[in-house]
């Protein structure tokens, strides 16, 4: 159920990217897409009342195996947030430069390549 909601969030982001005409809204669409996948990954590793995935001398291994949280998705999400930040900065920089050149954020008016 939660996974379905993640997927719906992804599709909302896709809708924002493909159907909106304002560059800022397109960028927001990308953010929604990225966060939906990140959320999905985090939920994959999540367990209700889970324990920290660190083995200590007095840890009961049977309990640990069933209850520990998966740490790998968290590392992946961390990296994905960093790359997402890099792309976001590039997108915003491009948007500012485009605004300087065209005087608008509307992508339908940016059609000098076709002329």
């Amino acid at each position: 159920m939660v996974y379905t909601l993640c997927f719906i969030l992804f599709v909302i982001g896709l809708y924002g990217v493909t159907c909106k005409k304002n560059i800022v809204k397109i960028i927001l669409g990308f953010l929604i897409m990225e966060y939906s996948v990140n959320l999905f990954l985090i939920l994959l590793g999540w367990r209700k009342n889970g324990v920290v995935p660190i083995v200590e001398p007095n840890t009961v291994m049977e309990y640990f195996k069933t209850m520990s949280v998966d740490p790998l998705p968290q590392a992946m999400v961390l990296i994905s947030i960093v790359t997402g930040l890099g792309t976001l900065i590039l997108m915003v920089a491009l948007a500012i430069r485009l605004y300087q050149r065209y005087g608008t954020f509307d992508i339908t008016e940016m059609n000098r390549l076709k002329k």
Partner: peptide, 28 residues
């Protein structure tokens, strides 16, 4: 950094970013 270069770059970015997130979702 001319207007056409930026426009092409943004178009390239948008299309490829959608593809990248599809790949990311597939990996997840």
């Amino acid at each position: 950094c001319g207007s056409k270069d930026l426009e092409a770059s943004f178009k390239y970015l948008v299309i490829n970013m959608i593809a990248t997130y599809f790949i990311f979702l597939g990996i997840a």
